[in-house]
Design a protein around this nucleic acid. Structure first.
Length: 220
DNA sequence: AGCACGATTAACT
DNA sequence: GTTAATCGTGCTC
């Protein structure tokens, strides 16, 4: 399959469908590596190759690192989207200034999601430069809050359907990267989260990709 | 009603 | 390596 930059905004058949997301978060997190995250902004495509992800609230045991585990595992106004059907955007605000972009996975009623942590810019780079003023290209999308800024992702996209053609954000299929280039390790920034969740290797990234947020961690 | 902290980033020393 | 920025959320009183 080849991928050529285009101004076509629908590209039917290439958009990853609901069934892709309706699986355990750790499987979706691995399979999203290499796919294209596409954001339609003012009629223009901004796109990046997904090079780093993290799985939250897989399916079996509770995950104390996951927002869905707060409030005794019941939905709140903030986390409601996580408990909904797969293939929707869960966007939340943190540290008083940053937005994080996640994709809901798994079954409805369970709070599964994958955090998109880093992208390699592919399309709409002029727009990304505007949205990341004063930063080098290498710093546009090499972190979860950075890519949210580069793609103009904020609360307005919380709850957006990623599987509907004609939307403003979605993921397009692309060939999977070679298996020996996929790395895994503990998730980043979990703070006081207790073991075993602090060390579970549910972070995935592509080896030697310059846009990974924290290179140099161990390979899986 | 009040409080501690956060799935981070950038600018420091 | 350290720390400020900055405010919504969930939890305690």
């Amino acid at each position: 399959m080849t991928h050529v930059a285009t101004s076509d905004t629908t590209r039917p058949g290439l958009i990853l469908p609901h069934a892709f997301y309706a699986r355990p978060a750790r499987h979706v997190a691995v399979d999203l590596l290499g796919k294209w995250l596409v954001r339609l902004l003012d009629g223009q495509r901004l796109a990046g190759r997904i090079v780093e992800t993290e799985a939250y609230c897989d399916d079996s045991a509770p995950d104390l690192a996951c927002h869905g585990s707060r409030n005794q595992g019941r939905p709140t106004a903030r986390t409601a989207v996580m408990f909904g059907p797969a293939g929707y955007a869960y966007v939340y605000f943190t540290y008083g200034l940053h937005w994080m972009f996640n994709i809901v996975t798994g079954r409805e009623g369970q709070a599964n999601a994958v955090l998109i942590r880093a992208l390699e810019p592919l399309e709409g780079e002029a727009a990304m430069r505007r949205l990341r003023p004063g930063r080098a290209r290498a710093e546009w999308t090499n972190g979860p809050a950075k890519l949210a800024q580069a793609l103009a992702i904020d609360a307005a996209l919380n709850g957006a359907n990623l599987t509907r053609p004609g939307g403003v954000i979605w993921v397009e299929d692309a060939p999977p990267p070679p298996g020996d280039t996929i790395c895994r390790g503990p998730r980043i920034g979990l703070g006081q989260t207790p073991e075993p969740w602090h060390s579970i290797p549910w972070r995935y990234w592509l080896a030697d990709n310059p846009f990974v947020s924290r290179p140099g961690t161990k390979k899986g």
